[in-house]
Design a protein around this nucleic acid. Structure first.
Lengths: 331, 331
DNA sequence: CTGTTAGCGCTTTCAC
DNA sequence: GTGAAAGCGCTAACAG
């Protein structure tokens, strides 16, 4: 049924070695190459990746572990990772961990079985124990105790930027709203440096920081905004949270951006294309994906690479903040 | 370095055959099973999937080809497919085709090389020629000339439903707005049966149907709505288009849902969680994913399956249409 | 340059 | 039941 290398060799009247050479672009005499190539075409031959993988101990496959691909941040990241890998003839296993560390562990095991060349992981749960340094692993947004390589956007600068931009637009009472996980990760810097910058600017700042999974976000945010009625500038942990906050604020009779300005984080395609253009601190998703892939493949090849890669964020103006000139006028 | 079956056999003092049997749950004497299991644990042994795949000619892997995973419809679908496969110990290759048939073809080839067990594809380009019937392939939303298995939501009923629901809410001038590709696919029925139902109901209906990729959607929609100022009920090809249309309508000074009611299609998590809750004809995404996986795996096992699977859609009320009682009052 | 050959790690007869 | 042995399709080392 399916043609094998032996079949090709027989049809071309050569040895399997030569066929292998042609497949792998090792120099061969031109006449034999011709014969082999036409035999390959005739038999519609495709090399068996599994046999090759077995032999070479290399799979040209990596796994991407993320909480859930339906979340736009992750799916956009996945998109860029796949594009980058495709360009390098790598394949991508997609793994939804659903945030459960058991499932993440399962995938790491699966990965070992499959001899995937490496893993890119966005994981906020406790899998430190499973990440051994011999495993080619690039982490996104998250650092582990062991020296795992990681790539992240400049969350600290993002936090500062949000505070500055809100201040520039006349906000006089800032707030941070977001959720967090217990494991340490880079996203916490968004809040931390936002608060620090607010203090530097001399603007009061309150925080609503809930442990995930969040029970009743709506009620919490409502209470928070009611307790602090003068809040007029909010920075949220991400764009989706910004959408939630906006909805709740409007429900409470506040207008965005007139009464309350909101800045999210991520700068997703999704929220860019939606009718509600959320002002956001944009992560350089494509660059992050490229960096992650590039680092991982270097590690796979046994090269030494830098442990931390921090990429710059940018301010992406939408309709949930005032124009700077308006703010100036109002002020 | 990495433990192999032989190592386990040696440590356990048995033959490799027995180890293989334990791995594959073939009956063995209880005492030897014990020995083998502890040896496996001690060596932290994991079977090599590639060697197994080579031997068994089976990979427990399928590929999912979709236009781009960053689109929420596709990523949500991908999520469900992965969940379903995970439950059956299958792995998922993710492929973004970007709508280019060359890339889709590449993936089909890749798939042949990898001996992926099968493919689930959402593909709107001309790859009919590459889909040969011996390839286990399940198509979503798209039927091919050859008898390829496909799964789809009931787009025809969705179109009818949209017209009925708009009528029920007092709309007196309907419109369909959407984009289309030249290849035949199920989504076209949304428009077709919407128009038919509008006619049945005796309500005028205009259509703006643009060939994708759309040059300047905004301008086109603006012109369309300006030319037909009495339109008060719009059905769009999907939720994202609905968001666009809403934004443009509001820019033109129309209020949603007061002046214009809008119904989208898909019923995505994303648009459900966003502050703008788009009324939508929801596709049963999870069921579609389950059906696709189930059908594909049956085909892989050589079973005969039904060619067409059509799953019911449902009306998902949001904030872009009026409440029925209000509409009644107004009327 | 090229044919032959020895495995890669696993499953699966086949005797014992 | 269980060990030994024959490959699955491929690559790479070795002779020619």
């Amino acid at each position: 049924m399916k043609a094998t290398m032996k079949d090709v060799a027989k049809l071309a009247g050569v040895g399997v070695g030569s066929v292998s050479r042609v497949i792998n672009n090792v120099p061969v005499k031109d006449s034999t190459r011709k014969k082999i190539e036409s035999a390959i075409k005739e038999l519609n031959y495709e090399p068996d990746i599994y046999a090759r993988g077995l032999k070479m101990n290399k799979t040209s496959t990596i796994a991407l572990i993320l909480p859930t691909v339906w979340h736009p941040f992750f799916s956009e990241f996945a998109y860029h990772v796949e594009s980058e890998l495709e360009a390098r003839d790598y394949k991508l296993y997609l793994c939804n961990s659903d945030g459960k560390s058991e499932k993440e562990y399962e995938y790491i095991q699966m990965v070992k079985q499959n001899k995937v060349d490496g893993i890119i992981g966005i994981t906020y749960s406790e899998i430190d124990q499973y990440i051994f340094s011999s495993l080619p692993f690039v982490s996104i947004d998250r650092y582990f105790v062991e020296d795992v390589i990681y790539v992240t956007a400049d969350n600290a600068e993002g936090g500062r930027m949000a505070a500055k931009e809100l201040a520039k637009r006349g906000a006089s009472h800032l707030a941070f709203i977001g959720g967090y996980q217990e494991t340490p990760n880079e996203t916490k810097n968004r809040r931390k440096y936002f608060e620090i910058e607010a203090q530097n600017l001399g603007i009061p700042c309150d925080t609503l920081n809930l442990l995930e999974p969040i029970e009743d976000l709506e009620k919490e945010v409502e209470r928070f905004l009611t307790e602090h009625p003068t809040i007029d500038g909010i920075f949220t942990i991400n764009d989706l949270a910004a959408l939630d906050v906006i909805r709740i604020a409007e429900k409470l009779g506040k207008k965005v951006p007139e009464d309350i300005q909101v800045i999210g984080f991520d700068g997703l395609k999704m929220t860019r294309e939606t009718n509600y253009l959320v002002t956001s601190i944009a992560q350089p998703l494509e660059e992050m994906a490229k960096a992650a892939v590039s680092l991982l493949l270097q590690v796979v090849e046994g090269k030494e690479v830098q442990r931390r890669t921090i990429l710059p964020v940018s301010f992406q103006e939408g309709t949930t903040t005032k124009k700077v000139k308006d703010a100036a006028k109002i002020k």
